[in-house]
Amino acid sequence: MISSPLSTDVLFHIGPIPVSDPVVVTWGIMAVMTLGLWLATRRLTIKAGPVQAVLEMIVEVIDGQIRESMQVDPAPYRTLIGTLFLFIFIANWSSLIPGVEPPTAHIETDAALAALVGGATLYFGIRVRGLGGYLKTFAEPSWVMIPLNIIEQITRTFSLIVRLFGNVMSGVFVIGIVLSLAGLLVPIPLMALDLLTGAVQAYIFAILATVFLGSAVSGEEGGKPEPQPPQKED
Protein backbone atom coordinates (compact mmCIF):
# COMPACT_ATOMS: atom_id res chain seq x y z
CA MET A 1 0.00 0.00 0.00
CA ILE A 2 1.43 3.33 -0.95
CA SER A 3 1.19 6.43 1.12
CA SER A 4 -0.46 9.60 -0.03
CA PRO A 5 1.60 11.39 -2.64
CA LEU A 6 0.74 14.63 -1.00
CA SER A 7 2.41 13.71 2.27
CA THR A 8 6.14 13.95 2.84
CA ASP A 9 7.76 11.10 4.72
CA VAL A 10 10.62 11.99 7.00
CA LEU A 11 13.20 9.26 6.75
CA PHE A 12 15.66 10.45 9.37
CA HIS A 13 16.96 13.51 11.15
CA ILE A 14 20.27 15.25 10.95
CA GLY A 15 20.32 17.06 14.21
CA PRO A 16 17.13 19.04 14.30
CA ILE A 17 16.69 18.88 10.53
CA PRO A 18 14.22 16.28 9.27
CA VAL A 19 15.43 14.66 6.04
CA SER A 20 12.53 13.57 3.87
CA ASP A 21 12.21 11.15 0.99
CA PRO A 22 12.50 13.65 -1.90
CA VAL A 23 15.64 15.11 -0.39
CA VAL A 24 17.28 11.72 -0.19
CA VAL A 25 16.28 10.88 -3.77
CA THR A 26 17.63 14.22 -4.90
CA TRP A 27 20.91 13.48 -3.12
CA GLY A 28 21.01 10.13 -4.87
CA ILE A 29 20.45 11.81 -8.21
CA MET A 30 23.15 14.34 -7.37
CA ALA A 31 25.58 11.60 -6.43
CA VAL A 32 24.87 9.58 -9.56
CA MET A 33 25.11 12.66 -11.78
CA THR A 34 28.32 13.79 -10.14
CA LEU A 35 29.95 10.41 -10.57
CA GLY A 36 28.58 9.82 -14.07
CA LEU A 37 29.44 13.27 -15.39
CA TRP A 38 32.85 13.19 -13.77
CA LEU A 39 33.58 9.88 -15.50
CA ALA A 40 32.15 11.09 -18.77
CA THR A 41 33.84 14.47 -18.91
CA ARG A 42 37.17 13.88 -17.23
CA ARG A 43 38.90 13.13 -20.56
CA LEU A 44 37.32 15.31 -23.18
CA THR A 45 39.23 15.55 -26.44
CA ILE A 46 38.99 17.49 -29.65
CA LYS A 47 38.07 14.27 -31.41
CA ALA A 48 34.89 13.33 -29.59
CA GLY A 49 34.04 9.77 -28.62
CA PRO A 50 30.45 8.47 -28.53
CA VAL A 51 29.75 9.56 -24.95
CA GLN A 52 31.30 12.96 -25.52
CA ALA A 53 29.34 13.35 -28.73
CA VAL A 54 26.09 12.67 -26.88
CA LEU A 55 26.99 15.19 -24.15
CA GLU A 56 27.94 17.78 -26.75
CA MET A 57 24.72 17.16 -28.57
CA ILE A 58 22.73 17.72 -25.38
CA VAL A 59 24.57 20.96 -24.71
CA GLU A 60 24.13 22.08 -28.32
CA VAL A 61 20.39 21.37 -28.21
CA ILE A 62 20.02 23.36 -24.98
CA ASP A 63 22.07 26.20 -26.46
CA GLY A 64 19.92 26.12 -29.57
CA GLN A 65 16.73 26.33 -27.55
CA ILE A 66 18.02 29.25 -25.51
CA ARG A 67 19.24 31.08 -28.59
CA GLU A 68 15.96 30.50 -30.37
CA SER A 69 13.84 31.69 -27.46
CA MET A 70 15.95 34.58 -26.14
CA GLN A 71 17.84 35.69 -29.25
CA VAL A 72 20.98 36.17 -27.15
CA ASP A 73 24.24 34.37 -26.49
CA PRO A 74 23.24 31.26 -24.53
CA ALA A 75 26.41 31.02 -22.42
CA PRO A 76 25.19 32.88 -19.27
CA TYR A 77 21.89 30.97 -19.17
CA ARG A 78 23.16 27.57 -20.25
CA THR A 79 23.84 26.24 -16.76
CA LEU A 80 20.51 27.36 -15.33
CA ILE A 81 18.27 26.15 -18.14
CA GLY A 82 20.30 22.99 -18.73
CA THR A 83 20.28 22.09 -15.05
CA LEU A 84 16.53 22.65 -14.81
CA PHE A 85 15.82 20.49 -17.81
CA LEU A 86 18.22 17.66 -16.98
CA PHE A 87 17.36 17.51 -13.30
CA ILE A 88 13.59 17.53 -13.85
CA PHE A 89 13.97 14.98 -16.64
CA ILE A 90 16.07 12.64 -14.50
CA ALA A 91 13.90 13.21 -11.45
CA ASN A 92 10.73 12.42 -13.38
CA TRP A 93 12.27 9.31 -14.85
CA SER A 94 13.62 8.16 -11.52
CA SER A 95 10.19 6.64 -10.98
CA LEU A 96 11.44 3.80 -13.19
CA ILE A 97 13.49 2.58 -10.25
CA PRO A 98 11.22 0.50 -8.03
CA GLY A 99 10.50 2.11 -4.69
CA VAL A 100 11.77 5.50 -5.77
CA GLU A 101 9.30 8.31 -5.91
CA PRO A 102 10.24 11.27 -8.11
CA PRO A 103 11.24 14.29 -6.01
CA THR A 104 9.29 16.43 -8.43
CA ALA A 105 6.13 14.69 -7.28
CA HIS A 106 6.54 16.68 -4.08
CA ILE A 107 5.60 20.32 -4.13
CA GLU A 108 8.65 21.37 -2.13
CA THR A 109 11.01 20.37 -4.93
CA ASP A 110 8.89 22.11 -7.56
CA ALA A 111 8.68 25.17 -5.37
CA ALA A 112 12.45 25.23 -4.98
CA LEU A 113 12.86 24.98 -8.75
CA ALA A 114 10.30 27.70 -9.44
CA ALA A 115 11.89 29.91 -6.81
CA LEU A 116 15.18 29.42 -8.59
CA VAL A 117 13.59 30.53 -11.85
CA GLY A 118 11.98 33.53 -10.15
CA GLY A 119 15.26 34.51 -8.50
CA ALA A 120 17.17 34.04 -11.75
CA THR A 121 14.66 36.20 -13.61
CA LEU A 122 15.14 38.93 -11.03
CA TYR A 123 18.94 38.55 -11.05
CA PHE A 124 19.38 38.57 -14.82
CA GLY A 125 16.80 41.30 -15.30
CA ILE A 126 18.63 43.61 -12.91
CA ARG A 127 22.04 42.59 -14.19
CA VAL A 128 21.18 43.27 -17.82
CA ARG A 129 18.92 46.32 -17.47
CA GLY A 130 19.94 47.75 -14.12
CA LEU A 131 17.60 48.03 -11.15
CA GLY A 132 15.72 51.03 -12.51
CA GLY A 133 15.45 49.57 -15.95
CA TYR A 134 14.13 46.33 -14.59
CA LEU A 135 11.56 48.01 -12.37
CA LYS A 136 10.44 50.16 -15.29
CA THR A 137 9.43 47.05 -17.14
CA PHE A 138 6.62 46.64 -14.62
CA ALA A 139 5.14 49.98 -15.82
CA GLU A 140 4.93 48.87 -19.42
CA PRO A 141 3.02 49.58 -21.52
CA SER A 142 1.60 52.01 -18.90
CA TRP A 143 1.70 52.47 -15.16
CA VAL A 144 -1.83 51.13 -14.94
CA MET A 145 -0.35 47.72 -15.65
CA ILE A 146 1.93 47.74 -12.59
CA PRO A 147 -0.37 45.70 -10.33
CA LEU A 148 -1.16 43.26 -13.10
CA ASN A 149 2.51 42.80 -13.93
CA ILE A 150 3.39 42.15 -10.32
CA ILE A 151 0.57 39.65 -10.03
CA GLU A 152 1.73 38.04 -13.28
CA GLN A 153 5.22 37.62 -11.87
CA ILE A 154 3.84 35.78 -8.90
CA THR A 155 1.23 33.75 -10.68
CA ARG A 156 3.50 32.48 -13.37
CA THR A 157 5.89 31.23 -10.72
CA PHE A 158 3.04 29.48 -9.09
CA SER A 159 1.88 28.14 -12.43
CA LEU A 160 5.34 26.61 -12.88
CA ILE A 161 5.06 24.93 -9.47
CA VAL A 162 1.57 23.66 -9.91
CA ARG A 163 2.00 22.50 -13.52
CA LEU A 164 5.02 20.36 -12.74
CA PHE A 165 3.70 19.16 -9.42
CA GLY A 166 0.26 18.33 -10.77
CA ASN A 167 1.52 16.40 -13.76
CA VAL A 168 4.15 14.34 -11.97
CA MET A 169 2.16 13.80 -8.80
CA SER A 170 -0.92 12.75 -10.75
CA GLY A 171 1.16 10.25 -12.71
CA VAL A 172 2.55 8.74 -9.55
CA PHE A 173 -0.91 8.79 -8.02
CA VAL A 174 -2.56 7.05 -10.95
CA ILE A 175 0.16 4.41 -11.14
CA GLY A 176 -0.13 3.82 -7.40
CA ILE A 177 -3.89 3.32 -7.64
CA VAL A 178 -3.66 1.05 -10.68
CA LEU A 179 -0.84 -0.89 -9.06
CA SER A 180 -2.99 -1.47 -6.00
CA LEU A 181 -5.81 -2.76 -8.18
CA ALA A 182 -3.96 -4.90 -10.72
CA GLY A 183 -0.29 -5.39 -10.01
CA LEU A 184 0.90 -7.29 -13.06
CA LEU A 185 1.50 -5.67 -16.46
CA VAL A 186 -1.48 -3.32 -16.30
CA PRO A 187 0.44 -0.27 -15.03
CA ILE A 188 3.04 -0.58 -17.81
CA PRO A 189 1.21 1.61 -20.38
CA LEU A 190 0.55 4.16 -17.69
CA MET A 191 4.21 4.10 -16.69
CA ALA A 192 5.18 4.68 -20.30
CA LEU A 193 2.75 7.56 -20.44
CA ASP A 194 4.26 8.84 -17.23
CA LEU A 195 7.71 8.81 -18.80
CA LEU A 196 6.41 10.78 -21.76
CA THR A 197 4.75 13.23 -19.42
CA GLY A 198 7.94 13.53 -17.40
CA ALA A 199 10.00 14.36 -20.51
CA VAL A 200 7.44 16.84 -21.80
CA GLN A 201 7.15 18.52 -18.43
CA ALA A 202 10.92 18.85 -18.14
CA TYR A 203 10.97 20.49 -21.54
CA ILE A 204 8.04 22.77 -20.71
CA PHE A 205 9.57 23.85 -17.42
CA ALA A 206 12.89 24.64 -19.04
CA ILE A 207 11.42 26.44 -22.01
CA LEU A 208 9.11 28.52 -19.79
CA ALA A 209 12.08 29.44 -17.63
CA THR A 210 13.88 30.50 -20.80
CA VAL A 211 10.94 32.60 -21.91
CA PHE A 212 10.69 34.29 -18.51
CA LEU A 213 14.40 35.04 -18.53
CA GLY A 214 14.14 36.27 -22.09
CA SER A 215 11.32 38.61 -21.28
CA ALA A 216 13.23 39.92 -18.27
CA VAL A 217 16.39 40.72 -20.25
CA SER A 218 14.77 41.83 -23.52
CA GLY A 219 12.18 44.16 -21.99
CA GLU A 220 9.34 42.91 -24.07
CA GLU A 221 7.41 41.70 -21.12
CA GLY A 222 3.70 42.04 -21.63
CA GLY A 223 4.10 42.59 -25.35
CA LYS A 224 5.04 39.03 -26.06
CA PRO A 225 2.56 36.26 -25.47
CA GLU A 226 3.84 33.44 -23.37
CA PRO A 227 4.27 30.40 -25.55
CA GLN A 228 2.28 27.56 -24.19
CA PRO A 229 3.45 24.17 -25.31
CA PRO A 230 0.67 21.65 -25.55
CA GLN A 231 -0.01 20.25 -22.16
CA LYS A 232 -1.29 16.92 -21.25
CA GLU A 233 -4.28 16.62 -19.09
CA ASP A 234 -3.51 13.74 -16.86
Binding site: T34, Q52, T79, F87
Partner: peptide, 28 residues
Protein backbone atom coordinates in the same frame (compact mmCIF):
# COMPACT_ATOMS: atom_id res chain seq x y z
CA UNK B 1 12.61 21.94 5.87
CA UNK B 2 12.24 19.90 2.72
CA UNK B 3 11.69 23.05 0.70
CA UNK B 4 14.85 24.58 2.13
CA UNK B 5 16.89 21.45 1.59
CA UNK B 6 15.61 21.07 -1.96
CA UNK B 7 16.45 24.71 -2.68
CA UNK B 8 19.93 24.00 -1.38
CA UNK B 9 20.05 20.84 -3.46
CA UNK B 10 19.03 22.74 -6.57
CA UNK B 11 21.84 25.17 -5.94
CA UNK B 12 24.30 22.32 -5.55
CA UNK B 13 22.89 20.72 -8.70
CA UNK B 14 23.56 23.92 -10.55
CA UNK B 15 27.17 23.74 -9.45
CA UNK B 16 27.46 20.01 -10.26
CA UNK B 17 26.07 20.40 -13.77
CA UNK B 18 28.11 23.48 -14.35
CA UNK B 19 31.30 21.92 -13.05
CA UNK B 20 30.97 18.46 -14.55
CA UNK B 21 28.95 19.00 -17.69
CA UNK B 22 28.40 22.42 -19.15
CA UNK B 23 31.73 24.06 -18.51
CA UNK B 24 33.96 21.19 -19.71
CA UNK B 25 31.76 20.51 -22.73
CA UNK B 26 31.58 24.18 -23.65
CA UNK B 27 35.35 24.40 -23.20
CA UNK B 28 36.03 21.47 -25.44
Amino acid sequence: WTLGLQALNVGVLLWIFSRFLFRPVADI
